[in-house]
Amino acid sequence: MDRLNLLITGIGGQGIIAASDIVAETALAAGFDVKKTDSLGMAQRGGSVVSHIRLAPKVRSPLVKMGEADIILAFEKLESARWSHYLRPDGIAIINNHSVPPPSVSLGKERYPGDEEITDILKQQTDKIYLINGADLAEELGNIKTLNILMLGCLSIFIPFEEDIWRDCIAKRLPARVVELNTTAFEQGRREIENILNTETGSAYGKREG
């Protein structure tokens, strides 16, 4: 691998910025030029968030072009669909199988798309869709805040950086008291993808659904 375009999407408050910082630091430690940029809207919790990360021998634009993301790492299902047009044909979508209805849905003004609609939107780009029950797994680990690192564990399977570099960068970014828990979350994320890949026959979506 000599270059990679990555999008991390989700909802403000899910730890997306920290996750993208860690990817960028890991890329730098692995010897790449890297740029990252976050679209934050009004920077508060609860809004749609997207982070662009690009690595290559020399990166100019920090923004990924539409249709050129190799991987989308989505922390919420609706947000995976919202940014799916950034994915390149046959790219990889790793999705936290979790829905958070926005206020317009709670107020009955808009409708949250069904799982099939979301799959259809993503399948226009790719069949490589990996659904992870990340929110449940993070809660089982005892802290929903580990979701972002668990998702990084999933991502790490598809990026050939040494595992130790990931671990170092995670440890550097997080407060010491939560490093151990998050390292466990990282490993759990890796295992989730490895299990899917080991049993995979086609799209992972059907098997992981529900």
């Binding site: 909802i11 403000g12 408050g13 809207g41 009004m42 920077a43 508060q44 919790r45 609860g46 809004g47 749609s48 609706l78 947000e79 669909a81 919202r82 047009h85 209805p101 926005p102 206020p103 317009s104 849905v105 808009e110 409708r111 949250y112 798309p113 939107i121």
Partner: peptide, 11 residues
Amino acid sequence: LNLPSRPPLLC
């Protein structure tokens, strides 16, 4: 895509 928007909110 006709997806519901997700504006930022008061926490």
